[in-house]
Structure formats: C-alpha cells, structure tokens
C-alpha cells in the first residue's frame, strides 16, 4: 500500500518562519539536556514530511496554531515565542495545554497534536524523517524493530544495537 512513501517525498509543508516557531516548541516538549532532544532527533523533518503526506489534513491547524502561539506570546510576554527564554516558553505552552488562550479555541487540541507529533518524530522508524541514527530509541533503551528476541531479558537491559525495519527484506520474509 503506502510503504515507505514518506521517504520519497521531499516537499516541505511549513514555511521557514513556521518551522522555526515549531522548532522552538519541539525543543521545549522534548528538550536537549545532557542527551539530545527533539530537534537533534529530527522531529521537525518528521513533522514536515508528515504534513506533506499522511497528516496533510492537519496543516491548517498547524498554520493557525503557530500564529496563535506567537500572538499569545507577544500579548502576554511581549515577544515572539522563539525569542522568549525557556521558562517563558513553558508558560505559553502551558496555556495552550490547558486551553487557556482566549482567541484560539482549539489551543488544547493544537498542543496535544504537536506533542504527539514531536514525540513521534523522536521515536518513529527513521525512514519517516525523525529518530536520526535511532537516537530516540537509544535514549529509552529500545533496540528497534528486531526480527525477534531469542532471550526473555527478564530484569536485564537489552543490549542489542537498534535496527530499523528493512522494507527490502520485509518483501521476502
């Protein structure tokens, strides 16, 4: 059916400005700490590809939501979202999460959607544009889409190098 179709798409759904605001949001949802965060993992590429494909229907929500984030940030804290400091950004995002943005009714829905997509971008199969070098999987000790597990690994870390699904092999197996 639609195997691997994202890989072949190169079109980007979001404008550069929209992408920069989204990047700032993604960084707060799954931040860089002593380990990589959503931006390093490629969550932005994931979302951009998805919005040009399977999630195209959500593009209008993204457009309106990203504008509302900046509007709310300016009104409440006097600057565009990306220029706020980390704490201030979280204040704005918490308002969206709680649906407390007076001029943007779907604020909570927008936040929920973006949160899912950012985390999908961190933990997806790498062919969808995110989880670069399987860094999301490494962070949580998930060894990827193994063919199987010969051992039950009871109270034991699974120390297999992560692998991604191989569609070429899947045709045959």
């Amino acid at each position: 059916m639609n195997s691997n179709k994202n890989k072949r798409q190169s079109s980007k759904a979001l404008t550069r400005t929209e992408a920069r605001t989204l990047e700032a949001i993604a960084e707060r949802i799954f931040p860089k700490t002593d380990t990589p965060g959503a931006v390093e993992a490629g969550a932005l590429d994931y979302i951009n590809l998805a919005l040009a494909g399977d999630y195209a229907k959500l593009l209008p929500l993204y457009r309106r939501g990203l504008r509302a984030v900046d509007r709310h940030a300016r009104r409440k804290l006097g600057a565009k979202f990306m220029h706020l400091d980390a704490e201030q950004k979280d204040v704005i995002l918490a308002d969206f999460e709680a649906g407390e943005v007076s001029d943007f009714k779907p604020a909570a829905e927008f936040f929920k959607t973006v949160r899912y997509h950012v985390l999908e971008g961190v933990f997806c199969e790498p062919q969808y544009g995110g989880n670069k070098d399987m860094m999301g999987w490494r962070l949580v000790n998930f060894p990827g889409q193994q063919f199987g597990y010969p051992d039950p690994y009871i109270n034991e870390r699974v120390d297999l190098p992560p692998i991604a699904v191989d569609y070429e092999a899947a045709e045959e197996d």
Partner: peptide, 17 residues
C-alpha cells in the same frame, strides 16, 4: 505480506494503516 507484516510502528500503530 508487505501490506501487513513489516515491523513499522508508525505505519501500523500510529497511523493504523
């Protein structure tokens, strides 16, 4: 098999193809 078997969690669990 290619329609149902690849171990692809975005395709089958997230986007429930």
């Amino acid at each position: 098999k290619i329609d149902y078997a690849p171990r692809d969690s975005i395709r089958f669990l997230v986007r429930t193809e």
